[in-house]
Nucleic acid binder design. Sequence first.
RNA 1: GCUGGUGUAGCUCAGGGGUAGAGCAGCGGUUUUGUAAACCGCCGGUCGUAGGUUCGAAUCCUAUCACCAGCUCCA
Length: 653
Amino acid sequence: MSQSNDSFEIIFPDGNRKTYPKGTTGYDVAHSISPGLARNALSITLNDEVMDLSRPISEGGPIKINTWDTEDGKMTFWHSSAHILAEACQELFPGVRFGIGPAIEQGFYYDMDFGDRTVTVDDLPAIEEKMTEIARRKLEFERKEIPKKEAVGYFKEKNDPYKLDLLKDLEDGTITFYTQGNFTDLCRGPHIPRTDSIKAFKLLNVAGAYWRGDSDSKQLTRIYGISFPKKSMLDDFLVMMEEAKKRDHKKLGKELGLYMIDNMIGSGLPVWLPNGTILRRRLEAFLRDEQIKRGYQEVITPHIANLRLYETSGHYPYYADSQYDPIEVDDEKYMLKPMNCPHHHRIFSNKMRSYRELPIRLSEFGTVYRYEQSGELNGLSRVRGFTQDDAHIYCTHDQLKDEIKNCIDLTQYVFSIFDMPVDIRLSFRDDNEEKYGGNLEYWERAQKELREVADELGLDYTIAPGEASFYGPKIDFIIRDAIGRKWQLGTVQVDYVMPERFELTYVGTDNSKHRPVIIHRAPFGSMERFTSILIEHFAGDFPVWLSPVQVALLPISDQYHDLAEKYEEILSSKGIRVKSDKRSEQIGAKIRDSENAKIPYMIILGERERESGSVSVRRHKQGDIGTFAFDKYLNILETEIREYQLPGKQNYN
RNA sequence: GCUGGUGUAGCUCAGGGGUAGAGCAGCGGUUUUGUAAACCGCCGGUCGUAGGUUCGAAUCCUAUCACCAGCUCCA
């Protein structure tokens, strides 16, 4: 039975090897390690293919046993959950037709056509209940290979046009069905062994989604959900959702008076209120100082420009759909600036440039206007008018790599200040020629250079084909916020196309003209979007250097207003943003209001402070931190601001 | 842009065919206070906008605008 040609060798992640007889299943392999592992196993990954536990293994190779704690395990778990969602809907809404139902990063969804019936969030609890009931039936997921003809026949009889559409693209011999209970689905798999390992479901949302993502085809109803092997995990997840909701920048932005959206001013055109303006100006000043240190020169360019500029750059009509229509003036067409780069290119061309000047680094907090689809607009994070922390570096080819390194270093430094971990992605082109400008040779060169730089810096990175911009490949910085969400922010792009289009030249050592290379880069990307992320990252509890109001002076009664005024004057003269609360309120109320306004420091002033000349200091979210000689407190405060310290990192001893 | 949901006072929300309500905020007064809400009083809305149905519309219908969740898109 255990002859060598009837067996296969499995390589475990720790390098151990073990031989099993043919016909051994993933479950058996897991069980041979430990019964506990077998109990918790959801699927296996063998030779990079994720497979059902129950499937007999026919060839050996590296294996991973996927439990809930692995990415593949979760995917299997959620995919199976999607099938249960489908079965529940089939029971509750006979006649429903099914699109696709995959696992996603956080849970799963199923796209369904409910015919004339409209399914709304109000229906979700009933579906959830049905799903739980189905899970408890302890149904097994059964895999079956089906000839194409039979598969087509099945869905014809079931009258399911979407599955038939999917079948069109599948080859005979590769088609599998999965069945649990009364639900059979066209599905590649894999699935978990039995439905009852799913202990908790939560349906999160209902949304429309086009069949195959094509806005010309029918819109299906997409139900999003998530599921867990333990009820307590669902509870934790729901707490997390609440936390994200509490941090919503639209809510906090309003409460803290950071920005407003006014429909008379215009949808998607955010207005920075005084508090928000302080925050944004601090961010800009922080970056500007850093850029000056690194040899950038700041410029300012107008908000509208002649259409010819964008025709030259190629942005128009490439992005015509997402630009505001040109305005006609004096028989010329002008357009709201959709990007800053062409302006900077003209600055470069403004005079003859020598190799001695290069690299030239032009930076601008440049406001641009793009016509985003109305359904896309969202608070500060997706708007129609926004300011980029843009810069363009014009350099020789020899300087390119060093300049890219500088950009990466700047970006990493910037995000380290906010305690945001950065992941790096190289966004390259794919085979779709129409998406890109410039010749292939330049592209390949640029992609090679980016990769070399990343390697030389020893960066961990992933490569994303098809994510490049139309004029060149880029390095994208994906940051993680305080609650683990990922955001694509900064970018560094190499551009060989624009120098050609704008015929940019510099005079080299050989006294002849050469083309510079351009690097486009923006650490924050958009001040608006970055601010929205920052609000949620800090939950509105900004570091002192960014806080609109840094110190609240709280006199205990109006007998101490003079003391508040004295400190207000001193602190203001030191550049500290300070406010005195001289209302006729009790100290508890003043504290409460300052806490709610998320002011980092509160100074309580009363008789004791008048006599001793010290200050009694309270830190937002921490409470009373003690009494300090005023000079000592001022020193703590100024250090905290100068060093861009994060909240909660102070030691007041 | 598409689908669904929502739009009532500065904010958070209740009311759901008979002609607007609470808390907070604001204002006036009283209180002069020691680490997260003092007390009393007052002001405040043509119920997103425009049509329609009706004796009568915040409420029902239509259109439109905005916002929210997705989809699609993203230099």
